[in-house]
Structure formats: C-alpha cells, structure tokens
Amino acid sequence: MWASILIASFGTYVEKLLGYLLPQGILERESVRRMTGLLPVSLLAALVAVQTFASDQAFLIDARILGLGVAVVALLLRAPFLVVIIAAAASTALIRWLGWMP
C-alpha cells in the first residue's frame, strides 16, 4: 500500500511540475486541451456509476442509489459539498436502519 501511495503521489506531483517545465506550444494543440478537459468528466462519471452499482464484479441495486438521488437533489438546490455528502450518507444509513433497502 505504501509503495502505491508514494508512486501515485510522486506521479501526480510530476504532472503538476511538467506543466511549468514543458514548452508553451503544447497548449496550442486543440486535441490536447480538449482531452485533459474531458478526462475528469469521463472518469468522475464512471466512478459515480461504478461506486453506486458495483459490488465486486456484480451489478447490485441497494440503498446507495437512494443516497445518490438525495445528492442530486442537494446539488440542484446548490447545497455546499459537505451537505451533499452528509445528506447522501445519512439518507442511506436511515433507509438501512429502517430495513427498507439493503
């Protein structure tokens, strides 16, 4: 675990550093600019889906989907980050405690 933490930390730091050391011309390449803008959208959307519906390698619908729904409502109401997350966790915990969803 420690090795992967160090490698990932070093790698993300080098990514930041590279930007200050690379020649500016790279910015002018439209495809590079587009791709670095779209990568977080793809990865974060996929992470939302997988962390909501995956249980190891099985597709599973459980109380997490309620938490995600509550998070969407909170975001539409422009709630701050921490409120979004606490609302999602609390609603999920509540519905499990009530025994309505696993």
Binding site: L47, T52, R64, A71, V72, L75, V84, A89, S91
Partner: peptide, 20 residues
C-alpha cells in the same frame, strides 16, 4: 453503518457537477 459507501459516489458527483 453511517452510509459511507453512499458518500463515495456522492463525493464524485459533487466533484463532477461543476464541470457539467
């Protein structure tokens, strides 16, 4: 028990939201 497994996708969604 605290629903932390649901906090994870909610966290990613909150990071994604401004980009959408």
């Amino acid at each position: 028990v605290l629903g932390l497994d649901a906090a994870i996708p909610a966290g990613f969604l909150a990071l994604l939201w401004p980009r959408l």
